[in-house]
Amino acid sequence: MSHDRAAGVPDRDPAPADALARLHLRGAIFLRGEYTEGWSYVSLPAHDAATLLHPGSSRVILFHVVAAGRCWIETGHERHWAEAGDVVVLPYGDEHRMGGVVAAEAVSVVTLIAPPPWAHMPVIRHGHGGERTDLVCGYLACDDPLFDPRLRAFPPVFVVRPPAGPARDWVRASIEYAADQTAPVTTHKIEGPSELPELLLREVLKLHLAGAPAAPTGWMAALRDPVLAPPLAAVHAAPERKWAVADLARIAGVSATALDDRFREVLGVAPIRYLTGWRMHVAEDLLTGSDLGIAAVARRVGYESEEAFSRAFKRRHGHAPSLWRTGG
C-alpha cells in the first residue's frame, strides 16, 4: 500500500454540536495547582483516580486548563506542551506526568495533596520558587463508547488551543467562575456548577473533532457499529502500521467487500481513505501539541520517509508540516 497519496477525506462538519450534546456527562472542577519552576509530578493510575473522584466509575475524563505559564504533559514517550489559555484533555484518565520548563525530579501527586474528604477545594503548591504555572483541573464521567479506552477514538492526551478572541476568553472566564463557585456542601463533599465543566469539555471536543476525518456524527455512529468498531479501534491504536483492507476485514470478521461497503455507508469513505485521513489527524495533533520532530511524526503515522509524509501533508493543508506547525 502506498502512503504517498492524497488524504481525500470528505468535507467535515466543523460543529458537531448535536452529536456532542447527546453525551451524558457528570463532573466538576476538583483542584487548582500553583507550580513554580522547576516542578514535575506523576499522577494516580487511571482506576485509582476514578475511584477517588467518582466512586463507581472505572475511568474518568481528566482535563487541565492552563490559567498562566507553560507546562508539558506526557502519558508515554510523546511530550505535549501547553500554555496559558490551552486545555489539556486526558479522555481516558490515563496515568500521566506533568512538569514545567526547568527539569525537575517527578514526585507522586499523592505526596502533594491531602486525601479526601476535603473541606474546601484543594490547592496544590509545589516547586522551587521560579516562574509560576497555574492549572485548574477537572474531571467528568461518561459511559458513552466515545470514551471507551478499548476503542481509542482519541489519543491518550491532546492539547486544544482555542483561537484567540471570544472562544479563548470564554474558556478562561468559565473556568475561573466554576473554580470560584466550588465550595463544600457537607464535611465529605464539595460541589460546584457542574454545567460549566460539561459545557467546557463539549466545546473543547468540538474544536478537536473539527479536524477528525469524516463527519463527526457518522464517525460517532461508526464507533458504535459492531462491524466498524473493531477495525477503527485497531487503526486508532496503531496508525503507523501498514494496514491493508484484508487486515481490517479479518479484525471485523467480515469480507473485504463487506467492510468496504460498510465504511462507505456509515463514514462515506473507503477504509484506506479513512486510514489516510486519520493519520493526518494524528499528525496535526502531534505537530500542534508535541515537540516531536517532523521525521518522528512521519514515522508515528506510518510514513517511511519524511519526504513522503511532507508531500501528503502539503496536499491536505497547502503547507509543509514545518510551516503549518509555526503558523506560516
Rank of each mutant, 00 (worst) to 15 (best):
E307P: 11
Y274L: 05
R279N: 05
D285T: 12
E265F: 03
A256M: 05
R264Y: 01
L287P: 07
G302H: 00
V301C: 15
L248R: 05
A258N: 08
A249Y: 03
R250K: 15
A244T: 15
A244G: 13
K314I: 01
R264D: 02
L287C: 08
G318Y: 14
R316I: 04
A270Y: 00
T288C: 13
I272W: 01
R325T: 02
R264W: 07
A244M: 12
G253E: 02
H317N: 06
G277D: 03
P321H: 03
R311L: 15
Y303Q: 06
L259Y: 02
V282E: 11
G318I: 14
H281N: 06
R279D: 05
V235H: 12
R264E: 10
G253R: 02
R325Y: 09
G277C: 08
R273L: 05
A298M: 01
A308D: 14
E240S: 15
A234W: 07
H236D: 00
S290T: 10
G268M: 07
F263T: 08
T326C: 13
G268T: 08
L287I: 04
R316A: 14
W324Q: 00
A312I: 11
R300F: 01
H281G: 02
A320Y: 10
P321V: 03
G293K: 09
A296I: 02
S322I: 01
T326D: 15
S290P: 09
V235Y: 04
G318H: 14
G293L: 08
P231Q: 11
E265I: 05
K242T: 12
W278C: 07
L267Y: 08
W324T: 02
H236A: 04
A296E: 15
I294C: 13
I272N: 06
H319P: 00
A258H: 03
T257K: 10
